[in-house]
Computed example of a mutant assay.
Amino acid sequence: MINILVLCTGNSCRSQMAHGYLNQFTDPEKIRVYSAGIETHGINPGAAAIMKEDGISIDHHTSNHVDEYVHVNFDYIVTVCDHANENCPYIPSKNAIRLHHNFFDPSKVKGTEEKRHEAFLRARAEIKEYFKRFVEEYQLA
């Protein structure tokens, strides 16, 4: 079994969307996906709604702290925001491939509902494309 961890600050938005796409792009018989934060903020309703628009439900996901997974030996650890990358505690995974990409944070956008929706669309598109390429590049499909 290949274990992938997606790590963000609060495990509420970007890491949750990435988790949803990784579950869609990979075989659950071969790949186990985890997402976590260096804090826990709960699932962002905007993230859940924008993923649902693309046919993926993350409503059942939970917001988890990275310390909950110290027992898991990860093959890939992907940080999806600079804050988590800079402040992440040591994760003792032997030989894990560590990747980082700072995705746009739609939860920080204020304004009209339309403006916030556009922000979540932008983030979703970036995350979907990145993780589609990730799965292809590392032959995880």
Rank of each mutant, 00 (worst) to 15 (best):
R133Q: 14
R32N: 14
I91D: 01
K115M: 13
I77F: 02
V80S: 01
P45N: 10
Q139L: 10
R32H: 12
F103V: 05
F103L: 07
K115P: 05
M1K: 07
N11Y: 04
M51I: 09
K132Q: 15
L7A: 09
A36T: 02
R116C: 10
D27A: 09
V78S: 01
D75M: 03
I31F: 02
M1R: 08
V66Y: 01
P28T: 05
I43K: 00
S93C: 06
D54Y: 11
C8Q: 04
Q139G: 12
N64V: 03
H41G: 08
A141M: 14
G20C: 07
K94N: 10
I50R: 04
M1S: 07
D82L: 13
F120Q: 05
Y21E: 02
H41V: 00
S12E: 03
N64S: 13
I43D: 02
P89D: 09
D54W: 05
S63N: 06
V6P: 00
V80Y: 01
T62F: 10
D105V: 11
V33S: 00
S93T: 03
P92N: 13
A141T: 12
V66P: 03
G10W: 00
Y34P: 00
E118Q: 15
Q16C: 08
P106N: 10
N44M: 07
E53Q: 15
Y138M: 06
S57Y: 02
E113I: 14
K132C: 09
G55W: 05
V109I: 15
K128A: 13
T79D: 07
F104Y: 15
Y76E: 07
S57N: 11
N3F: 08
C13H: 06
A18I: 03
A119H: 05
K30Q: 11
I127Y: 01
D67Y: 13
I50Q: 08
Y76H: 10
I38H: 01
L5Q: 06
T9L: 12
F74Y: 04
G37A: 09
C81V: 06
R14D: 03
T112N: 11
S35H: 05
R14A: 06
P28G: 06
N64G: 04
Y90D: 12
K132M: 13
V135D: 01
D59G: 10
G10M: 02
G111L: 10
A141G: 13
P28K: 12
T62K: 13
I43M: 11
E114F: 11
Q139K: 14
A47F: 07
R14N: 06
Q24R: 14
K94F: 11
Y69M: 12
Y69P: 01
H41Y: 11
A125Y: 09
F104M: 04
E137Y: 05
P28L: 07
N11L: 05
T26C: 08
K52C: 04
Q16S: 08
S57E: 09
P89Y: 06
N23I: 05
P106R: 02
F103Y: 03
G37V: 02
A141C: 12
N64P: 04
K30M: 05
S107G: 15
T9K: 04
M1Q: 07
G37E: 07
E68M: 14
A84C: 09
P92Q: 12
P106D: 11
G42M: 10
Y69I: 08
G20H: 02
I127H: 00
N85M: 13
Q16E: 13
A96Y: 03
C13S: 14
I38D: 01
Q139C: 08
K110L: 14
C8S: 15
